[in-house]
Design a binder for these strands. Sequence first.
DNA 1: CGAAACTTCTACATGCCGTAGAAGAAGTTC
DNA 2: GAACTTCTTCTACGGCATGTAGAAGTTTCG
Lengths: 122, 122
Amino acid sequence: MATLGDLERTVMDLLWAAPEALTANELRDAIAEAPSGEVGRELAVTTVLTVLSRLEKKGLVERERDSRPHRYRSVTSREDHTAELMHEVLVTAPDREAVLARFIGSVSEAEAETLRKLLGGS
Amino acid sequence: MATLGDLERTVMDLLWAAPEALTANELRDAIAEAPSGEVGRELAVTTVLTVLSRLEKKGLVERERDSRPHRYRSVTSREDHTAELMHEVLVTAPDREAVLARFIGSVSEAEAETLRKLLGGS
DNA sequence: CGAAACTTCTACATGCCGTAGAAGAAGTTC
DNA sequence: GAACTTCTTCTACGGCATGTAGAAGTTTCG
């Protein structure tokens, strides 16, 4: 499974939110002024690069190696990634139907409505 | 989040499968003859006890302290736990509806059918 | 070419997990 | 109740993931 640490998560959040691929420096600055984090985290750029390398190794991030300040982007959207994770969790249980039953009970009415629409056809 | 290691997972699987609370020794034996694992793992009982303590600290397991060989049981069913995990994953994303849309696409037809039934009314 | 920017390598601390011995507590047997 | 057995708790160590970053090597720009 691909479990992320806090900093890794922060970096992914920024990459997912960004419309374009970002450089390590841009990420460093974004983390510093992070509205999500509490204290201003002044990280060294190498720290960010290390995290990005690890995320790349995990297949979550890819980089443009040709453009000189390498630019990093997420491989999948946050939604795809999250949905994939949910599915991975689901299949760990033998009785998936029972899990889904509980799961349905935990979502909001709005979400249930969404599901109904999505499942409508077929 | 409550991410489990391999041994922790094995122990939880056994506790979830057991109809009654188990002692550390029973668990040790069950792990040794584990049909799930590959090689026979002859663990020391203290190892199992340590794992159980950690699981207890995580709130996944509780024990009967009065009965002398303490007996351990899972606090929640595997289905509840799994559904809870799925929900935790879901809420990490801001756009839950988009996540659900992707998620629906990843489940089997049988599971989709189950969901339709569960969502049926209202 | 020389400085500035960037990347890669290497490293260390911390925390979680697998694993278990040593020591202490409790129940069991004559 | 003293010795023996059985359990539990404490402590510990090695490995791996992660946060963090300096040192050294590479590329770019003026």
